[in-house]
Design a protein around this nucleic acid. Structure first.
Length: 274
DNA sequence: GCCCAGGGAATCG
DNA sequence: CGATTCCATGGG
């Protein structure tokens, strides 16, 4: 991968397995949207970004080398070799097809609090409505910034009431959002410690929060904390496991289970598997 | 109207 | 332990 700076934009060349549309619209993040020119816009870690990918090139608009090194390189997981992972599952016919179909997906390293809160909202919910609730959460309690609103911190939310959250129309999830905000803001659950804590222990920490079970915890660990061994089992993945794998994940997928999980989720939802 | 959605808590037996 | 049931909301 090479990086060049041009007119305030960054151009990444020879970057493999990175497709903005697949990565940002595969259900791991809920705040990105695409315009007519194929440019994706969103806010993460308090910063607004526009990005477009085309084959092995990516253009990041109106950003700096400093922010790229500090935020976006890590956010888009650009240091990981996904070709190696795709190769490792290529011997299994279904996994191979899922991987080829999803080869532009990168597993994001999102802000852990935003990830936790977003996936609490995701429970028994559909993706368009999750996006709506998350956006109303940001507009109501986030801070105005370039291009929109930031994701509100746990500290901002921890003293609110369920009535305060009524404008979100998040239903029964409101009480879970508040419990998460309180435990995180008080340090009762220390999200930053979960980066390095072993996977099982990190998951047990997250499950202390009301409304957080194994699935929401796994999504937080995978999409926010870099634990690629986490394997979130939602209704789609349960169907794939039952219908195609006899309930057991193929051995070759285990080392990078979370990434393979996202390939399967994306592939299954496309209708190509059935 | 009915069914389902990136589930989890409460309550059974 | 495992299996049900309920939870708010809105799109299809």
């Amino acid at each position: 991968m090479t990086i060049t700076e041009l007119n305030g934009n960054l151009i990444l060349k020879n970057i493999k397995n990175f497709d903005a549309a697949q990565t940002l619209d595969c259900g791991q993040a809920f705040r990105w949207s695409c315009d007519a020119d194929g440019i994706w816009s969103g806010i993460a870690f308090g910063k607004f970004l526009r990005i477009k990918t085309d084959n092995d090139t990516a253009i990041l608009y109106n950003t700096t080398m400093h922010d790229f090194d500090k935020i976006w390189k890590n956010y888009f997981d650009l240091d990981r070799d996904y070709g190696c992972i795709l190769e490792s599952i290529s011997t299994h016919p279904i996994l191979n097809k899922a991987g080829l179909y999803s080869a532009g997906i990168r597993i994001l390293k999102q802000d852990p609090w935003e990830t936790l809160c977003s996936f609490i909202i995701s429970q028994n919910n559909n993706i368009p409505r999750i996006k709506g609730i998350v956006e109303r959460l940001c507009m109501t309690f986030g801070e105005k910034t370039d291009g929109g609103y930031t994701f509100p911190t746990a500290e901002r939310l921890c003293n609110l009431t369920i009535d305060d959250l009524a404008p979100l129309r998040s239903g029964f999830r409101a009480k879970y959002i508040l419990d998460a905000a309180q435990k995180v803001a008080r340090g009762e659950v220390d999200l930053n410690s979960l980066y390095t804590l072993p996977y099982i222990q990190a998951r047990d920490e997250l499950i202390k929060i009301k409304g957080v079970g194994e699935k929401v915890a796994d999504c937080t660990l995978l999409f926010g904390l870099g634990h690629i061994e986490a394997f979130p089992k939602d209704v789609w993945i349960k169907r794939v496991m039952a219908n195609h794998f006899d309930g057991v994940l193929p051995e070759c997928a285990v080392p990078s289970a979370g990434i393979v999980q996202q390939y399967l989720f994306y592939y299954a939802r496309s209708g190509e598997l059935d």
